[in-house]
């Protein structure tokens, strides 16, 4: 809320970034308040993941400023930004394959979450519970199937105790019932007061849950508003023409499928 005297949680001011001649962000400005729930859509190559990279510190901007809670974070490394409250998941999950699921979450609680040993034990167990992974706690993370890896990404990001959580395509490549389970997890994280920006190609996962929807194309926001309005916007429909199909990741059926919730 720009008119408030309290600084917004996240403020992007004219952030630009290009790789050679490819422009991924062109003067992007965005304000996200505490506990906001924002969805982001856009065609492939629109610059969505790059925007997350800019916010989370994997990519440094050519121009513009990024502030968290009023404090400039442009010069902080990605690890430092995580420690001040920006959690993120990756589109392609990055589990620590040689560690157990619980250890994966524990390192996040100890580092990003900056918890001492005893407190980190409890908080990591709690994060697993929220993500529905408690039964897999002692399994090597490398043996998880796709859905479980996505859950682990969320549990790990949650364990860093974020104020702002960036979710990148958590529903991609999953079946409808699986998507529903993930939406439920995201909703329960949100109920804990965490602000969320959620990139998703599976638009139906967003429409029922987010308060605000952004559409990004060619490194610029082309629409911003309530989900229904944005999806009805002619520019958005044009941008999406023929691409509004939920993509299916290759190899999703490999492993870990029969042992979901009911097992």
């Amino acid at each position: 809320m720009p008119d408030s005297s309290v600084p917004a949680l996240l403020e992007l001011d004219s952030v630009s970034k290009s790789f050679g001649r490819v422009v991924v962000a062109e003067g992007l400005s965005l304000t996200v308040g505490e506990a906001d729930f924002v969805g982001m859509v856009g065609p492939n190559g629109a610059g969505k993941t790059s925007l997350f990279g800019l916010i989370a510190g994997d990519i440094s901007p050519d121009a513009g400023s990024i502030r968290l809670g009023g404090a400039q974070v442009n010069r902080l490394s990605s690890a430092a930004r995580c420690r001040v409250g920006i959690g993120r998941t990756y589109q392609v999950p990055r589990p620590f394959g040689g560690m157990t699921v619980y250890e994966n979450v524990l390192v996040a609680a100890q580092q990003g979450g900056r918890l001492r040993r005893r407190a980190s034990y409890a908080f990591a167990a709690e994060a697993l519970e929220v993500a529905g992974l408690a039964a897999e706690a002692n399994r090597p993370a490398g043996t998880l199937g796709l859905l479980q890896r996505k859950r682990l990404e969320m549990a790990r990001a949650l364990a860093t105790r974020p104020k702002l959580l960036l979710l990148d395509e958590v529903a991609g490549g999953l079946t409808d019932p699986e998507v529903a389970q993930l939406v439920q997890i995201v909703t329960s994280i949100r109920a804990g007061g965490v602000a969320i920006i959620w990139i998703e190609h599976v638009v139906r996962a967003l429409t029922g849950s987010v308060d605000r929807l952004l559409c990004l194309a060619g490194g610029r926001f082309v629409a911003d508003g309530g989900p229904a309005d944005v999806l009805a916007n002619p520019t958005v429909r044009e941008v999406f023409l023929g691409t509004e199909v939920s993509t299916s990741l290759p190899g999703q059926s490999a492993g870990g499928q029969p042992d979901q919730e009911q097992a």
């Binding site: 989370a56 995580c82 990756y90 994966n104 996040a108 100890q110 790990r156």
Partner: peptide, 18 residues
């Protein structure tokens, strides 16, 4: 625990604050 995370995925480790 940090070192083991870095061993398995350095980018992932940075993203959880290591």
């Amino acid at each position: 625990l940090e070192l083991t995370a870095v061993r398995d995925d350095e980018t992932g480790a940075r993203s959880v604050g290591v």
